[in-house]
Design a protein around this nucleic acid. Structure first.
Lengths: 341, 341
DNA sequence: CTGAAAGCGCTTACAG
DNA sequence: CTGAAAGCGCTTACAG
């Protein structure tokens, strides 16, 4: 592998000159330029990105560490959409994505700080699902830019984040069911440890109480974002007899598919007898029967905005923080209908 | 941000000593060790990974560039499985994944060579779908290790790759349909430019001809891996009347879902009247009705093996190459059944 | 427009 | 076990 020095020798110039023709920003005479390029060509020279990074203190890389908490991160298209969104924004601007692994929640934090501390990336987007105040506080103490996907636990004003207003949109989804005449509505949340679970539950509760509907604790189940979780919720709730829900709201599509499966097995018609709403709008919503009404959460867009904030922070070296909400949309399809009399 | 030098000064030792306590491999007296660690602690020192990389010529990173050819790379769980597989093997060994973007096929190659040349990663796994001989030849000319996901166009013996034997497994899937009594079988391939499409088509053709079944060119359609492609294939083929296929093999699940949708709209019963087989075994196969019989291709496992070969090449600096096949499995579910009389 | 020099923050033979 | 020095391959003020 040839270096800038080899090229310089072959071209009969100083290494700094070679550097200048490759970095682009500097006036170089037409003649030396071609001489250098020629030499580089012949030696198959490619600038070493690591050496450049060390010198300019920029890697043109943004990082993300993947939680291995539940496989739903992959099953439910959450992670792919995030990577896609990051790439959509970052790639055209010359950035690449560094993906780190983790094998537990605490390891996830360790890995995040490792990337932050070692400067292997210029910035990092972190999934703030389970971050506590301490963690966020510690991130603020260091000086590599970061942006959260999801709000921090306490409402720091000097932290950047992008989030959906989960409470509000779940409220609207429940309201839609109420508008269809449903009165007994189930809430199937994800992992109760994850912020989004309680956010959505608040939306559910406020829609119910605003409509002055009775709330039954047995209508609430945590399905941990898995298909089985949804399926199990149906087993539990159909036992309630007269008190069984006529509609289910699930905090992700996977659980909604499990609900659909559970209802089908019990011979319950959807949407004639029971309505089902999922969350995310994953591709499979259109492939199931009936097609699934779902609350679309634009993860790719969230990630793209996170990348935007991050790259802004990196390049402008501003310490200004920004908070952004993205819009969700209720995709009404076949799995919801009027409450039967 | 403090450096090794700051720590050295504070601890009253030479920078090389600090380096030694952090790199781990070197005998250091208990006393200096704690002095250094103390100083590092106080200064919140974290070794700079980039500087280390430059010095040791290793980044502990393996790269992949994502093709933006068709969104199916994301929709069909191909890419997420690949990243998951890479990470599963790489993460426990201290490697991270660098993900690059691209916006066209030629750009994909440009980006690949850019990573290779700039030494931003220690190795790269490349999707060999559309690589031509020239490209593979050029990759061999440089000295960063790489492994192909899929075979190279010509059968180079000095190139590492991991692949499924697509021809063989599609042959078996078709044979399964033939065993069920089907005689008119449709092949719905992906993008005809992609190697896997013709590989599977060969498997299809040889199963048909071995069973001495007539082959009708109108039973062959390219659905470009999209839902719509499968849907459209049904529109075309149901027009064939008596000659319409009684079974469909689709080269990915997405197209199979489109086929299912098309058949449902036409009131064709699956599997009573027509059987359908997909490929990949994406999560949604279990959520559709009927559940989809599919040829499982273990992408995550393929990627993990690619990571294994790659890391081997990186760490042993051996130039030995290896070729590996992974096993596929026909997952028999509800969408296939005996050919109606 | 080009050269010479110092520096980015580590590592690692070489001495002792 | 520790220090001093050279080096990894670039970049970038500073001169001229």
């Amino acid at each position: 592998m040839s270096t800038i020095r080899d090229v310089a020798i072959k071209a009969g110039v100083h290494p700094s000159t070679v550097s200048r023709v490759f970095s682009g920003n500097a006036k170089i005479s037409q003649e030396t330029q071609t001489r250098v390029l020629d030499a580089a060509q012949k030696l198959d020279f490619h600038p070493n990105a690591i050496a450049r990074s060390l010198s300019v203190k920029r890697t043109c890389t943004i990082a993300i560490v993947i939680p291995h908490i539940y496989s739903g991160y992959f099953d439910d298209e959450f992670f792919p959409q995030v990577v896609q969104g990051l790439l959509n924004f970052a790639y055209p601007r010359g950035y690449r994505i560094l993906v780190g692994g983790s094998n537990s929640h605490s390891d996830e934090i360790v890995q995040t700080f490792d990337i932050l501390g070692s400067r292997q990336a210029d910035g990092i987007v972190v999934l703030s699902n389970r971050l506590d105040v301490d963690t966020v506080g510690a991130m603020r103490e260091q000086d590599t830019p970061f942006v959260l996907l999801g709000r921090p636990p306490a409402h720091y004003h000097d932290v950047s984040w992008v989030d959906a207003d989960n409470e509000r949109y779940t409220y609207e989804a429940i309201n839609y069911l109420i508008g269809l005449g449903h009165k007994r509505i189930a809430y199937v949340g994800g992992d109760p440890e994850v912020a989004v679970t309680s956010e959505r539950q608040r939306g559910y509760a406020s829609a119910m109480s605003q409509a002055q509907l009775p709330q039954n604790p047995r209508w609430i189940e945590y399905g941990y974002f898995s298909d089985e979780g949804g399926y199990y919720a149906v087993q539990r709730m159909t036992e309630l007899g007269d008190e069984a829900p006529t509609a289910y709201y699930a905090a992700n599509d996977l659980m909604a598919f499990g609900i659909l499966r559970g209802l089908r097995e019990k011979g319950v018609g959807v949407p004639e007898q029971v309505s089902v709403i999922g969350t995310n709008d994953s591709g499979a919503c259109l492939h199931v029967t009936p097609t699934l009404t779902t609350l679309r959460v634009p993860y790719a867009q969230m990630a793209a905005q996170a990348a935007e904030l991050l790259i802004q922070a990196i390049e402008e070296e501003s310490t200004a923080c920004a908070q952004r909400f993205v819009d969700c949309e209720l995709m009404i399809r076949e799995s919801t209908g009027p409450c039967p009399a």
